[in-house]
Every structure is written in C-alpha cells, then in structure tokens.
C-alpha cells in the first residue's frame, strides 16, 4: 500500500497483539485428556483467557443442566457469579469432584476438555457484566438445558 498505511499499522500492532491469543480458535487441535497438573499447567492459558473456549464452556454449562442448581446466571445453590475469582484448576476440581458430592462422578463422565472449558467459563463469569450474561443466555435460550429439555418448538 503506502508508507502511511504501514505506520498506522505498526502503531496498532502492540495494541492488537495483546488480544491475539484470546481470539485464537484452533479447531481440531489436540484436546486435553487430563486434569490440570497445578497452577503452572501451561494449558491454563490456552483456556482461561480464550473467548472461544469460555463461550463453549458456557454452552456446556447449560447443556448439562448445571443451571438447574446454579442458575444460568449462577445464582443457585452456589452463588458462582458473585464469588471471588477462583483459579481455573480449583474450578476444574470443583466441577470434576463436586463440593457436596452432587456431581462427584463428573470426572469420569465429562470429557476433560469440556471441564476445562466450563472451568474457563466460571473463571470468567464474575468478570462478565450481568447484562451481558443475560444477553448471551437469551440468545441461547433454545439450546438443550438438562435432561428434561424437549426442544425449542414447545
């Protein structure tokens, strides 16, 4: 193009680079098959701050009917939205094992990747504005919600 374009572009680069990893969407990449090994697990970064993974986590949260107890806005049994921001690996353990045993078998039943994604979603939840959570929930209202869901055409 021309010199101006290049200069304007260079000025933008650091600004945009920060967002790059959050925007990454690697379909068909190798999916994690194990729980986080600890706070330093390198996979945490791939999930915790990634828009796509967080969004997928939100969908599975609905699909598995987590909202039955926790509410889609996470204001149920455990008030997840207002809590402090938990670490991803702590959330992973909480989902996989369950605090009170309600979903103690999830580690065996839910594939690891989906727990990663749900943990990422919960990790982000307290940072989302309530209006935004509500807006997403309204857009996804027709999606499967737990075992009793019959379809959007009821």
């Amino acid at each position: 193009m021309n010199a101006r374009g290049a200069i304007a572009g260079l000025a933008l680069i650091p600004f945009l680079l920060a967002g790059c990893s959050r925007e990454a969407r690697q379909l068909a990449s190798d999916q994690p098959q194990t729980a986080p090994s600890g706070p330093a697990d390198p996979r945490t970064a791939r999930y915790a701050a990634n828009f796509y993974q967080v969004s997928q986590g939100g969908r599975y949260f609905t699909w598995y009917g987590c909202g039955d107890c926790h509410g889609r806005l996470a204001r149920g049994a455990a008030n997840l939205a207002n809590g402090s921001r938990h670490a991803v690996e702590a959330l992973y353990t909480a989902i996989a094992a369950g605090q009170s045993g309600a979903h103690s078998d999830y580690a065996a039943r839910v594939p690891a990747e989906q727990i990663w994604q749900m943990a990422a979603y919960l990790h982000d939840l307290s940072r989302h504005e309530p209006a935004r959570n509500r807006r997403n929930a309204l857009d996804q209202q027709g999606e499967p919600q737990g075992n009793r869901w019959q379809g959007p055409l009821q």
Partner: peptide, 14 residues
Amino acid sequence: PQALKPGTMMPAVP
C-alpha cells in the same frame, strides 16, 4: 471426532 469433523461439539472420549 475432532479429526473427522473439526469443531464438532462431540468431544474426544478417551
């Protein structure tokens, strides 16, 4: 599933 249909909601089950 992700190798056959990348992006599908079906997760790989070990």
